[in-house]
């Protein structure tokens, strides 16, 4: 296996790009790459003969075996971004700390949420403010919960790459909000994240898929609530790989999310707020504006709906 020593992190410039600005390609240690894990930065392979960089793995996608084989064959892997731990210095520590807190049975719920918020306060600036980076929530929860499963992501990516990334962001932000407000058990968090991820994609409906794909590719695709309900039905029935036996509270909440928001269910409000933060369509803004959740977050985390990075994300 080709391994690059950590101290040989030489930076190379891309002479071939046409944009005029030079990109710096940082060598990546191939031995650190694992099949099935979520790729945290775009990975390039370098063709020695032509001195060109080829994009082989996109960020937010699971690393496939054939891609890793190619990397091993090429031997040189680069990225234009530094490693996740270098970009977010507190990430690893926060994951470890939250993991400990989730399994700590000696804490009362309000103490647990308080400590979790304290340990992940730096995330709120990135996720819930303008010009932030919602992807950090994805990486944080992926390292914490190890969901969605690679086979689930593969199945979803087959339908739409762009919507996969959007759904992953929405699901991660919603789960992070849930972690900050309720701090339930780990199994519940996993089910919650996976369910929203599959629900938000909304393109499983099988009426004339070609036309839908064409419409998505050309005129832009707007997910409907009925599409989400249909998608969630598939997840509920276990027809999506990697998902089975969902938690009943998640099922009841997401099956009737519109009604549950009207009833003041906080779980449903969390999903709606995450969709608002990530630039989702058809969000019930008026309900959110009056929701207890937003008041709670504004008090606890200095959150404001108007400061949410909706426009930037959209």
């Amino acid at each position: 296996m080709y391994t690059l020593a950590p101290n040989t992190m030489a930076k190379e410039s891309d002479k071939n790009n046409n944009s005029g600005t030079e990109l710096e390609y940082i060598p990546v240690d191939v031995s650190q790459l694992r099949v099935g894990t979520l790729v945290d930065r775009p990975l390039y392979a370098r063709m020695e003969s032509r001195n060109k960089f080829i994009l082989m793995a996109r960020s937010l996608h699971p690393l496939e075996q054939k891609t890793l084989d190619r990397f091993l064959r090429f031997g040189h892997v680069y990225s234009i971004f530094p490693a996740l731990d270098e970009r977010y210095g507190k990430l690893a520590m926060s994951v470890k700390r939250v993991e400990e807190l989730l399994f700590d049975g000696s804490l009362a719920p309000f103490e647990k949420t308080s400590l979790i918020r304290k340990d992940t306060e730096w995330l709120s600036d990135l996720v819930m403010k303008k010009n932030g980076d919602a992807d950090v929530a994805v990486f944080f929860l992926n390292k914490l919960l190890h969901v969605p499963h690679p086979q689930t992501i593969d199945y979803v990516v087959e339908h739409s790459v762009d919507l996969h990334e959007h759904s992953l962001r929405v699901a991660s932000v919603a789960t992070l909000l849930l972690l900050w407000t309720e701090a339930p058990k780990e199994e519940f968090l996993k089910d919650f994240l996976t369910s929203i991820y599959c629900e938000e994609l909304s393109v499983y409906r099988d009426d004339s898929p070609n036309l839908r794909l064409i419409a998505m590719a050309t005129a832009g695709y707007t997910a409907q609530d009925s599409d989400r309900a249909y998608s969630f039905e598939l997840a509920k029935k276990g027809e999506i790989p990697g998902i089975s036996n969902l938690d009943r509270r998640v099922v009841e909440t997401l099956s009737r999310r519109g009604k549950m928001i009207q009833y003041g269910d906080e779980l449903a409000e969390i999903v709606e707020l995450a969709r608002w933060i990530c630039g989702g369509t058809g969000v019930q803004f008026r309900v959110l504006w009056e929701s207890r959740l937003v008041r709670k977050l504004s008090r606890l985390m200095n959150f404001s709906l108007t400061d949410a990075p909706r426009k930037a994300a959209a």
Binding site: P109, P184, Q262, Y263, E290
Partner: peptide
Amino acid sequence: VRQSKFGIEELLRANARVLYEYFFS
């Protein structure tokens, strides 16, 4: 501020205080 929901906030006056918590055990 909410009038469309049936929390206990709607049953109290404007100078109310409401506390709530989730129990998982």
